[in-house]
Design a binder for these strands. Structure first.
Lengths: 314, 314
DNA sequence: CTGAAAGCGCTTACAG
DNA sequence: CTGAAAGCGCTTACAG
C-alpha cells in the first residue's frame, strides 16, 4: 500500500481496484487519518485557504459579510482566515504579509484609506484580491462596491420631496470609509435644488452622531434634514436632536445608511439606505473565484444596487 | 548561502556574522522573500494558526468575541481561521475536521448542543480546545463561561424587589444555547419567593421574543415580569407587550441578556444582564495559550462575572 | 561561523 | 492496477 495509492483513493483519482479502495478506506477510518493540508498545499500550491481582512469590526455590515463569505467559501471547499486591520495601514500591511506567508489562494479586503499600492504589491505577485468599497487599479484585483452615489441621491431626493430645505451631512473621519454614502457628489445633487448643505465628519458611532448633529446645528441652526454615513451615527443624531427639543421627523428628518437591525427597532424607526450584506458577500465570493480561475485579468468593478427604506425618522 | 544559513537569520537563531546577516536581509528585501509557513509548519508541527468555530453568527456577543479573539491571537503571532457551524452538529463536525486537517494549533469552539463527544474526539488526538459556554469533560479541553446562574439570580431578584409577582421566562430553542441565562435553577431561585414562573422556548430573535410573550400571556395573563434569553428576544417581547396595550415597565418588567448595543438605544432602554465580550475573549485566548503550553492537563472551567444593568424596561 | 544531508507528508511524473 | 523516485520549502541534527 504505497502512499501513491492512498493518495489516489483520497483524491478520487480513479485507477485502483474496488478491493484496494475499500481496504484503504477502512484503514483511514480505523486510524482516524486525515490528509495534511499543509503538505498537500506545499506541493499543489493550493492551500485551500482564503483571507478576509476587514477594517472596523464594529460595523454590522462587516459582520454580515463575514458570515456570508464564510458560507460561500465553505461551499468552495475553502477555509477562511479572518483578520482585522483596525483601520490602520501598517497593521493591514502586517496582516496581508501574514496571510501571504500562509499561502492563501486569495483575499477579500476592505481596504483602509490610501492603501491601493499595498494591495497592488501583493496582487502583482500573483495573489488574487477582491477590494470591497474602494476601487483599486491593478491586475488581479477586483472591486465590489455598493452604488452609494445612487443611495445618496435617493436620500437627498427624499429629503427634498418631503419639503426639507437645509440639509446637513454627517460623514465619517475614517476618510474613504468604504461603506458610507459618497460625499463628493453632494454639490452636483444639491446644486439644482436651491437647498443648502453643510458637512461635518465624526467617528462613525452613536456618540459621533450626537456630536455631529451639535456641530451641524452650530453651522446652520435652521437645519431640517440630515444624511448620516451610517445608522449608528443617525441614531446618535436623532438622540441629540431630541435632546435639543427638536422633534424627529416633524422638525428635522434624519436618514441613516446600512439598515442594521436596530434601525427598525429604535424610536422613531430609522429611514435608511439599505446595503444588502448577502448580496455583497455573494458578489465578493464570486469575484474572488473568478480571479482564482482566470488570474491576471483586469476586471471591471461590480456595483451593487441599494434601496431607500422609508420608516419614521424622515 | 545555504538554506540553513538563511533559516538561521530569518528565525533570529544567532550563529552567523553580521556581514552574512546583512547580506541575507538585503536579498530578502530585494526578492520580496517571505517564509512559507506551510513548509515550516510541516516540520515544526506548529502551523501558526488557530480556529474559531461559532454557532449563530447573528449573536452580537459572538462578533465581539471574534474581534477580541483575533486581537489576542495576533499578539501571539497566530492567524485565525473563522468558521460557523450554523448551530448544526454535522456542520460543526465538518468544520472541526477541516481545521484539524489544516493543522491548527488549537481551537475555540462555541459548541452546538450535545457535541461534547465530537470535541473530545479531537482533543484526545492532541488538539487543544477551549469550549465557550458549555463545559466539556475531557483532557485538553478548557471551559470558559459566564456566570449565568448569578445573572439569572440578579435578574429575578430585581424583578421581585420591584414588586413583580408572576415571572415568565423566554428561553431559546437552540437548547443549551451557551450564552443565555441558565434555566435549570429557576425553581431554586423562585421557590422561596412565592412567585410563579412559566417558561417557553423560542427562536432567539426579535420575532421569537414577540411570539414568546404571546405564549406566556396565554399561559399566565397576570404576568408582570419577563426574563429573556437575550436582548433581541427582550426587544421583541417589549414590542409585543406594548402592542397588547401593556406598558413597559409599569405593567410588565422585561429583562434581556448580553447588553448588545441596541439595548441602550431602544425605547424603553433595556434592563439587561451584561456579558462582557472583551473579558470573554481575553479569558478564552489565555486558556488556549495555557492548553498549548501545557497540553494534556485537565482544567477547571473559568467562570466570568456578569452584572445587571438597570435601565428603563424593568 | 557555515553548510550538506535527511525528512516533514504529501503529489507529480514516470515505470512496471 | 500499483509502486519507487523525486521534490514542494522549510527545519532538525550533525559535521566541518
Amino acid at each position: 500500500m504505497a502512499p501513491r495509492t492512498v493518495s489516489r483513493v483520497v483524491n478520487d483519482e480513479g485507477g485502483y481496484s474496488q478491493a484496494t479502495r475499500q481496504r484503504i478506506l477502512d484503514a483511514i477510518e480505523e486510524l482516524g487519518y486525515r490528509p495534511n493540508l499543509l503538505a498537500r498545499g506545499l506541493i499543489t500550491r493550493r492551500s485551500g485557504t482564503v483571507g478576509l481582512v476587514v477594517g472596523n469590526l464594529t460595523d454590522p455590515l462587516v459582520l454580515a459579510l463575514a458570515a456570508s463569505a464564510q458560507d460561500s467559501f465553505r461551499e468552495q471547499g475553502r477555509s477562511m482566515f479572518f483578520a482585522s486591520s483596525d483601520d490602520d495601514a501598517d497593521r493591514q500591511g502586517a496582516v496581508l504579509q501574514s496571510l501571504w506567508s500562509h499561502a492563501v489562494e486569495g483575499m477579500i479586503v476592505i481596504p483602509v484609506g490610501d492603501s491601493s499600492r499595498q494591495l497592488a504589491d501583493y496582487s502583482r505577485r500573483g495573489l488574487p484580491i477582491v477590494a470591497v468599497g474602494s476601487p483599486v487599479e491593478a491586475r488581479n484585483v477586483a472591486g465590489v462596491m455598493f452604488d452609494l452615489d445612487a443611495g445618496f441621491r435617493l436620500a437627498v431626493r427624499h429629503l427634498l420631496d418631503t419639503g426639507r430645505r437645509s440639509i446637513g451631512m454627517i460623514g465619517s473621519v475614517s476618510s474613504p470609509y468604504a461603506l458610507c454614502p459618497g460625499e463628493e457628489g453632494k454639490d452636483e445633487v444639491l446644486g439644482a435644488s436651491g437647498a443648502g448643505a453643510q458637512m461635518v465628519r465624526v467617528q462613525p458611532t452613536v456618540a459621533g452622531g450626537a456630536a455631529g448633529l451639535e456641530q451641524l446645528l452650530e453651522l446652520e441652526p435652521d437645519l431640517d434634514g440630515i444624511l448620516s454615513c451610517n445608522d449608528l451615527v443617525a441614531i446618535g443624531a436623532v438622540g441629540a436632536a431630541r435632546a435639543r427639543g427638536r422633534r424627529v421627523p416633524e422638525d428635522i428628518g434624519i436618514i441613516g445608511c446600512n439598515d442594521i437591525e436596530p434601525a427598525a427597532l429604535v424610536t422613531p424607526s430609522l429611514t435608511t439606505i439599505r446595503l444588502d450584506a448577502g448580496l455583497l458577500a455573494a458578489a465578493v465570493a464570486a469575484a474572488l473565484q473568478g480571479l482564482i480561475d482566470e488570474p491576471g485579468e483586469q476586471r471591471d468593478p461590480v456595483v451593487l444596487p441599494v434601496e431607500l427604506v422609508v420608516r419614521d425618522s424622515a
